[in-house]
Design a protein around this nucleic acid. Structure first.
Length: 417
DNA sequence: TCTGGGGTCCTAGGACCC
DNA sequence: TCTGGGGTCCTAGGACCC
């Protein structure tokens, strides 16, 4: 059996752990740049605040209902996530950490209800984060079970096992609510008169394959209790890595862009070194604000092949700026920029280039290692390449940032007794 | 009237997830 | 004034091979 443990309103719950005064209060967490609403407490959901809405459109509701607003605080959420996951790891045979706030657990077919309740109790008691648990035979069904646990149970635990029970649930599940069926596929199915999961699994399989490809067919199999997705416990190695940001203040200044792009290139290199791989291609993009119809629009992007796969700060900056130079156009107001590195190769499998004209790669490598050492202990970008800049006028807005309670010693919680 | 059969690799675009 | 960031997988079609 597979259990899906999913944290409730994760980011909002993280903020609340350290602000017990906000119990039962509406909370929202905003995306980078304080742009969109990306997490809501139950109270905020009840007001009708939707996921992904631009925050400025809800300003009045925030005021009217006294909604507490937070900028994203990823160091905090990442750390809280690690705490939750370590508890789950200790309480299961095998675990797949699927995202920052959910994990699939391999669980014995014993007293499942007791198991789920126990996990839920431990996590809330040891971290302060409420979770729900759904248990079933396949991942897709476990997802469904979790959904029911969240919406329709008091205990926050739901076991989806008996055949008749499953069919009843499928009849009440809209196709769009199934994990892996997105809005496009849901619309397509609706057009053919298929509305719920039971109707979906009753269809001819060759038709499903034709319309929804093997991806859809696998989902249908999983709904029928046939396992197609195994627990994946070692997917840490990424195939692409991206660092991109919207700017707090849009800019047309080339220097701002080069500061941003070189900083993103360094971020990508750091992520590469962390997973011990190197990139063979790098893509750079810059674009104007697509939501502003009165502005001249431009989307510039270029992909560069590297002579030899690398994860070095300086080489990556060099290539990124070469790319930026070729796509930059004067007279546009840029809102967002980013760097994507791809064709990632494990460091010990890099193909050397016969015509490599960079004969001091080892020296660069040592410098990057030292950068990591200093920045890991002293703070991000404490030591940096000059072109990354110091004034950082383009940096994102985070006006409602909560303290990094668990990862920065000077921001640790003070308790008065 | 009528033109084979069997492969690989790469890329762009679509669909999906959190 | 004001709209996030980071991923994965699959397919069709092109270009190529014998």
């Amino acid at each position: 059996m597979i259990a899906l443990v999913d944290c409730n309103n994760f980011y909002a719950s993280c903020e609340r752990v350290f602000r017990p005064d906000l119990k039962k209060q509406p909370i929202v967490v905003l995306s980078n740049n304080d742009g969109c609403i990306i997490a809501r407490s139950n109270e905020a959901k009840a007001i009708g605040i939707r996921m992904g809405e631009p925050a400025y459109k809800r300003k009045e509701d925030f005021k009217k209902h006294n909604v507490h607003i937070f900028s994203t605080n990823f160091p905090l959420y990442g750390d809280m996530s690690n705490r939750v996951m370590s508890i789950l790891r200790k309480n299961s045979k095998d675990i797949e950490i699927y995202s920052i706030d959910e994990a699939f657990l391999d669980c014995q077919d014993g007293n499942l209800k007791e198991y789920g309740v126990d996990i839920k109790k431990k996590v809330i008691q040891w971290t302060g984060i409420p979770v729900c648990v759904g248990i079933a035979e396949t991942k897709v069904l476990a997802k469904l079970a979790n959904h029911i646990a969240k919406k329709h149970t008091k205990s926050g635990v739901f076991i989806l096992k008996e055949k008749q029970n499953i069919l009843d649930v499928l009849k009440k599940t809209n196709v769009g609510e199934i994990w892996g069926i997105g809005s496009r596929s849901a619309k397509l199915l609706n057009n053919y008169g298929i509305y719920n999961a039971f109707e979906l699994i009753s269809l001819d399989e060759s038709w499903i394959k034709r319309k929804l490809s093997v991806v859809g067919l696998r989902i249908v199999h999983e709904l029928k209790g046939i396992k197609c997705f195994d627990l994946d416990n070692k997917r840490q190695i990424k195939k692409n890595i991206c660092t991109s940001r919207s700017f707090g203040t849009p800019t047309s200044d080339y220097n701002h862009l080069s500061q941003a792009i070189s900083t993103f290139a360094v971020r990508c290199s750091e992520k590469l070194r962390k997973q011990q791989s190197s990139a063979s291609v790098i893509k750079i993009f810059i674009y104007t604000n697509p939501f502003n119809p009165r502005q001249k629009q431009y989307y510039g992007n270029i992909t560069l092949q590297l002579d030899q796969a690398t994860n070095d700060n300086q080489i990556m900056i060099h290539e990124a700026l070469k790319g930026l130079k070729s796509i930059y156009k004067e007279g546009y107001i840029y809102k967002k920029a980013g760097v994507i590195v791809g064709n990632l190769i494990p460091n010990n499998q890099i193909q050397l280039n016969l015509f490599d004209n960079l004969n001091n790669r080892n020296k660069y490598k040592k410098i990057s290692t030292i950068f990591d050492k200093i920045n890991n202990s002293m703070g991000k970008d404490k030591i940096r390449i000059a072109v990354q800049g110091f004034d950082r006028k383009w940096q994102m807005k985070q006006e409602q940032l909560s303290p990094a309670y668990t990862t920065r010693i000077e921001e640790i919680l003070t308790i008065k007794i």
